[in-house]
Structures are given as C-alpha cells and as structure tokens.
C-alpha cells in the first residue's frame, strides 16, 4: 500500500506542470470591445430606458475598474517615469486617460446619486439633484470626446489585435496575423 502510494506520488512529481496561460491581450481585446459597445449604448439613455441605463451604467463602472486593473502596470510605470520623456505619445495618452478617469468617476458617482431605479433613494435636495444631473449629462458628453480620442490613439493596437483575436479564425487573415507576428519577431 505504502509502496503504491509512493509510486503514485512519484509519477505525479514527474508529470510536467501544465498551467494554462492566461492571454492578457485576448482578455483586453474582448473587455475593451465590450466596454466600447456598452459605452456607445449607455450614452443614449433615451434608447435604453432609465432602468436599463442605470443597470448598464453600474456594469460599465465595474468593467471600467477591471480595465484599469488590467493596465495597472502601465499606469505605475508611466507615473514613475512621466517626466523622463515628456515629448512622447504615451504622455499625452496618460494625461488623456487621467481626464477620462476623472470624468468617468464623476459620471458614475453622480449617476448613482441621482439614480431612481436602483433602490438607493438618497433623498437629495431638489437643487443638488439638479446640479448632479447637469454634471452627469455634461460629463457624459465630454467623455464621448475623450473616449473617441482614446480609441483613436489606440487604433493600431485595436486594429492589430481585433484582426488577430476576432477574425483570426478566417484562414487568410489568420495567416496574415501569424506572418506579421513572425516578421516582428525576426526584426
């Protein structure tokens, strides 16, 4: 019995550990596409209706936080080295992202404060609620501009990875993506 147990253990030790690698880029592609689609629809509360607008808004807030967590290394690295290379695209991107973060936080918080279907009923004063609504709507209009710039600045990454992960199964595009990656590695 003991011999049997021992032998089993040894076999297990010999077996190579196969850990499924999490493809961070793939996660980013799908999450970002989901975020963009959600944002485009979420902006039009006339389209969704108030209840769904508020629920989707909460979901968007959660997905937005996840997006930040997935890019945390980039944020930390750039914060540390911000002033070393001021004339770099990433610095403009960084400032834009901070603006986007502030605007998204403002819109999310004001959205929660003025929500009417989430069951919070915070009982804010009429005037304060009016101000919150104004901030919520102006903030969301500004976010559209910032997100558009954010998407535009990451266009190369979106194009490359969307082709790879969304349409990679198509034979021609799949081959191209592989060829492009091989060329990149060789160079």
């Amino acid at each position: 019995m003991a011999v049997q147990l021992f032998s089993r253990k040894s076999v297990a030790q010999e077996r190579p550990i196969v850990r499924k690698q999490i493809n961070k880029t793939r996660w980013n592609v799908f999450l970002d596409l989901l975020l963009t689609a959600t944002f485009i629809v979420e902006l039009e509360e006339h389209f969704l209706g108030l209840a769904l607008h508020e629920l989707v808004g909460l979901f968007f807030g959660g997905a937005f936080i996840l997006h930040i967590i997935l890019h945390w290394d980039w944020i930390v690295n750039l914060t540390r080295t911000f002033f070393q290379k001021l004339l770099h695209e990433s610095r403009f991107n960084y400032v834009l992202n901070i603006l986007l973060f502030v605007a998204a936080a403002l819109v999310t918080v004001t959205g929660i404060l003025i929500s009417r279907t989430l069951g919070l009923q915070l009982g804010l004063e009429q005037e304060l609620q009016g101000t919150m609504k104004s901030l919520h709507m102006i903030g969301s209009e500004l976010i559209l501009v910032i997100v558009a710039l954010h998407v535009a600045l990451h266009w190369k990454w979106i194009k490359a990875n969307a082709v790879k992960y969304l349409f990679g199964w198509l034979p021609k595009l799949g081959k191209r993506a592989v060829a492009a990656n091989t060329a990149k590695v060789n160079s």
Partner: peptide
C-alpha cells in the same frame, strides 16, 4: 420599466459610433 428599449433612437447610438 427594465426593458424599455426605444429602437427609434438607434440613430443616436450610431452617431456615437460614427463620432469615434
């Protein structure tokens, strides 16, 4: 109501995508 989607407002959604 939770599912009160107004499909006639789809143009506005298309505008957001177009703007990006």
């Amino acid at each position: 109501a939770l599912l009160d989607i107004r499909w006639e407002e789809l143009d506005s959604v298309a505008y957001n995508l177009w703007f990006m």
